[in-house]
Design a protein around this nucleic acid. Structure first.
Length: 371
DNA sequence: AACATTCTCAACCGCGGTGAT
DNA sequence: TATCACCGCGGTTGAGAATGT
């Protein structure tokens, strides 16, 4: 292990920070600010490099730092954002006040690690079902099942997500996304208790659940035992299958002819104050949802998030947008009427009534799925 | 109780971006 | 334009804690 380039000449202390060092750093930052980190150690009387000081401040000493377990809302947000921006932890962290990129990264990696180890048993079977029963992208040589990346080695559990999640025509990006998506979905089936809300822990809600089902999509038109027609049929433009991880994985799940289920996220939503009840009556599903006025996000935050994510997707999709502009237009105008977005602005009582009457076939519950 | 294994998380490393010169 | 210093980020490591056997 070498030293930072910035502190080659100095004799710097390394390792854990002592309370005294913390105090010095806090005292200095609170009185002088941190305009130039390289100057901080010297001025604060610390035998650390500026980089280390910065890290310590940002990840631990900042007054607005928020510690403790992630809330359900935070976890969902992380999942949603990660599906869009990949491993851009700083970007994700910017949407979670008080949380650091390091914290989110650690959480994500430990969560993935924990879950990636289990697919060898329960999840692998379901993953195999989806990968062998269809020509989904997950079965190509470039798309091994998620568990194929797992080893028992602690240090090899790091996920290798796409550098650019929607990166142009990159097949590897798609591969990574599908792989990641599969892991995520699989994880959501076996959510950690703190996320599951209801605490179903590692036991799937039912056998043979679609591990590639999208996180935020909920079918409101079919019975509880069957899924709606594959989105590839009409609801979702085919080009989106390749660029939207949720859609891609949903398509894969549909192709696998897997049964529908109440997504764990919905369970979580229920825990947050939104309740959803689905039942089958004479072959038709009635879905009733009561959402609290608080909704999933605070409205302002939600809107900001949507704007940023939309911009991100626009950037990532880039030329594809041009190619399919007309299709997208149709999608927006015609297909969107079949969808409900999980947005408190959209999810109004009238919408709920409409949904109950069967006017909507799908629910998108992700903040990223608008447009 | 002792040991092994797994998990958590703070910290480090190295790279890329950016601005100053 | 090239070089340098600095900053910020993502990937990785490793110590200590927690848990399992």
């Amino acid at each position: 292990m070498g030293h930072h380039s910035c502190c080659n000449q100095q004799k710097v202390k390394r390792g854990l920070w002592s309370p005294e060092e913390d105090e010095k750093l806090i005292r200095y930052i609170t009185t002088h600010g941190y305009g130039c980190w390289s100057e901080v150690p010297e001025k604060a009387g610390l035998q650390r490099c500026g980089k280390s000081c910065r890290l310590r401040w940002i990840n631990y000493l900042r007054p607005d730092i928020r510690r403790g377990r992630f809330t359900v809302e935070e976890e969902k947000l992380i999942i949603s954002l990660h599906a869009i921006v990949g491993n851009r932890w700083a970007h994700i962290a910017s949407h979670l006040p008080g949380r650091t990129d390091n914290e989110i990264k650690n959480y994500w990696n430990s969560w993935i690690k924990k879950k990636i180890r289990k697919p060898a048993t329960a999840a692998a079977a379901a993953a195999a079902a989806t990968t062998t029963s269809s020509a989904s992208a997950t079965t190509s040589p470039n798309n091994p099942p998620p568990c194929s990346t797992a080893t028992s080695d602690h240090h090899h559990h790091q996920l290798h997500p796409p550098p650019a999640p929607f990166g142009g025509a990159s097949a590897t990006a798609d591969h990574h996304h599908l792989q990641l998506d599969a892991i995520i979905n699989q994880n959501l089936i076996s959510l950690p208790p703190k996320l599951a809300g209801g605490g179903h822990d590692d036991s799937p809600p039912s056998a043979g659940l679609p591990h590639h089902c999208p996180l935020f999509m909920f079918d409101t038109t079919t019975g509880a035992g069957a899924v709606s027609p594959p989105p590839s049929s009409s609801l979702i433009p085919t080009h989106l299958h390749h660029h939207h991880p949720f859609i891609a994985s949903f398509t894969a799940a549909m192709a696998a002819d897997t049964p529908s289920y109440l997504p764990p996220l919905v369970d979580g939503m229920a825990a947050m104050g939104a309740a959803m009840d689905c039942s089958v009556e004479d072959g038709q599903t009635t879905a009733a949802m009561a959402a609290t006025t608080n909704g999933y996000y605070q409205h302002q935050k939600q809107q900001q998030l949507e704007i940023e994510l939309e911009e991100e997707e626009q950037r990532q999709l880039g030329h594809h947008q041009h190619e399919h502009e007309h299709e997208n237009h149709q999608w927006d105008e015609e297909e969107a009427q079949h969808l409900l977005m999980w947005d408190q602005e959209v999810l109004t009582s009238s919408n709920l009534e409409a949904m109950q009457s069967g006017a909507h076939s799908l629910l998108f519950m992700g903040p990223n799925d608008h447009d």
